[in-house]
Each structure stands twice: as C-alpha cells, then as structure tokens.
C-alpha cells in the first residue's frame, strides 16, 4: 500500500476520523477524569467521531463539572473511582486487558500516572525509556516536525538518546512518513567542533540509528534553523537531505526541546500534538493552556499510534 504521509494537524485529526470510520475506532481511558479541560477535550473528540471514551474518576465531580460547562458527556462511559491513584490503576488495567487502546492523564501529576503505567503487574512496559514527542505543525513549515524530548528525560546519555529516537521513529511510522528524516541537534551547525561532549553523543547515536533503524536519513549536528530552513544554506558546508526538511528533531536536552517548542507555540501559532511513547499504549496529556485544537490533535495522535501498534502487532 502506498504510504499516505500525515503532514499537518488537520490531516492528523482527519486520519483518526477515517480510521474510526473504517471500524477501527480506538478507546481512550482517562485516569482521574475530574478535570474540566480533559472532559471537554474527550467530549469534543468523541463528537468528532474518532474515539470512544472511558472517564475513570470521581463520577459526582465529573458530572458536576460537565454540567457547569454544558459539556455533553452522554456518550462517554463513566467509571466511578474516587481516589486518584486507584483511578489511575483502573485506567491502566483497562489498557492492559485490551479494553482501552490509549491512556489519558486527568487530575493527577504526570509522574504518578507514569508510575502506574510502568507498574510491572500490568505488563505495559516496552523495552525503551518513556519519552515525550511534541509533534508540531508550524505555520510556514511544509510538514510537521517531531521535537523530542522536552518532557521526560532530563539528561539523556547516548543510549537513552537512541531510545528516544527509536520512540520518535515509531511515531513517524504511524504517520506513514518514508523515509523518516532525522536531524540531531548539537550547538549551532557551524560551531560543532567547539563542543566536545556533543559530537561524542552524535557519534554514538547516528551510527547506531543507521544500523538499527531502517528507512531513515539522519544527520547531525544540525541547528533548528538548518533542520527546517534552507535559506542561506549555500554559505555553510553542511550537505544532506535532511536540511530544511526534517521530520524528527532529536534535541540535546529537555530544556532545548521544551523551550524552543514553547517559543513556536507561543509566537508562531504552532499546533502541537503531544504524546508519551515507549509503553505498549500511548499516553496522552493536555495542559490547561492548550487550545482545543492542540487537545484534539494530541488525542488524535494517540489514537493513530494505538492503531499502528495494533495493526502491526508491534508489541507481540
């Protein structure tokens, strides 16, 4: 089948709807669903037709919140579990039993939820570390770029960085990108020889990626500028197919990724789909300040990723 690459946040949501229409509607279980923003996003996504939702949490609070904000939750299933940790366990258990395809964070800290996701009794651990993918649709850039990791791993060593990349490549496969173009960040592109610690990372990650991950083009060190723009490119010595056309930007630190992504969200009106990858089910989280489109895109990417796992028997 010819790959149909997903290149924008609109296409992302449309594709999730298409899969659902083809009889592959995914179920998302919310852990501690007493959070009005999460309830709103789930109701919207359900109304758009791309997921079934199970709200695990304090039923009284959920109903009251939905009532106050006039959110129609009639078509979402509610499971009444008042304690937040117990609710997290319940949602994760649904996923481990195959009754949910993705998990969404509600009213509890991310770290508390992930601890439950990684709890051995549920068997949802993958072989890689958990990492966050921020798939950004930046107006002015001709495709989406997956910036990682700006949310999970504080200071990745080269092996962890490879795992973060492998997680991101899995998302790229789910988005049907081929070949996957990966830019690896380190200092500025013209300045790499003054940064001894970074090329050593790159010297580990890039050969490993070329050996183990098929159908990718990888290059580094590359700056954000070089990863997404060819302007002025002739003045530099860098060559390669990734320049100005990156699908994945593997960044050097949590700060770099988080800060540059937020600059793009704040000032470039970038729509972002965020998902935590590395477990056998995608974990979705949205924050209060996200726009409704961000929230829907985040849920859509979780559904598309879950669909990819299922169709390709990734974890079997």
């Amino acid at each position: 089948m010819t790959p149909r690459p997903i290149l924008s946040s609109d296409e992302l949501i449309a594709r999730a709807i298409e899969y659902a229409g083809a009889g592959r509607k995914r179920t998302v279980a919310v852990a501690a669903a007493q959070d009005v923003d999460v309830i709103g996003a789930m109701a919207q996504a359900e109304a758009d037709g791309f997921l079934n939702g199970i709200l695990v949490g304090d039923a009284d609070k959920i109903t009251a919140m939905a009532g106050d904000e006039s959110i129609d939750i009639d078509r979402l299933e509610i499971v009444d579990v008042k304690d937040v940790t117990a609710a997290a366990h319940h949602a994760v258990k649904l996923a481990s039993e195959g009754k949910a395809d993705a998990i969404m964070k509600g009213f509890l800290p991310t770290s508390s939820l992930l601890k439950v996701v990684l709890d051995k009794q549920y068997g949802l651990r993958g072989k890689n570390t958990l990492s966050h993918c921020a798939v950004l649709d930046i107006p002015g850039y001709h495709k989406m770029i997956n910036m990682t990791d700006g949310g999970m791993v504080v200071k990745p060593d080269p092996d962890t960085k490879f795992q973060i990349l492998e997680n991101a490549v899995m998302v790229a496969r789910a988005l049907e990108l081929s070949p996957v173009k990966v830019a690896v960040s380190a200092a500025t592109d013209s300045f790499s020889d003054a940064v001894p610690h970074i090329p050593s990372d790159i010297n580990v990650v890039i050969p490993q990626a070329k050996e183990k991950l098929g159908d990718i083009v990888i290059q580094g060190p590359v700056s954000f500028e070089l990863a997404t723009s060819k302007i002025g490119f002739e003045y530099q010595d860098e060559t390669g197919l990734v320049v100005g056309d990156a699908d994945i930007f593997l960044m050097d630190s949590i700060e770099e990724c988080n800060l540059v992504a937020k600059a793009l969200i704040q000032f470039a009106q970038a729509v972002f789909a965020g998902v935590i990858v590395g477990a056998k089910v995608p974990v979705s989280l949205v924050s209060r300040t996200d726009t409704i489109k961000n929230k829907k895109a985040s849920l859509a990417i979780a559904c598309i990723l879950a669909d990819y796992y299922d169709r390709n028997k990734v974890w079997q």
């Binding site: 500025t188 300045f191 940064v195 700056s223 954000f224 500028e225 960044m251 050097d252 770099e256």
Partner: peptide, 8 residues
C-alpha cells in the same frame, strides 16, 4: 541554558 537553546 545552552547555546543551541538560545539559537533555537
């Protein structure tokens, strides 16, 4: 915190 962050 780093040069690539500022440049980015």
């Amino acid at each position: 915190p780093t040069i690539e962050t500022a440049h980015g």
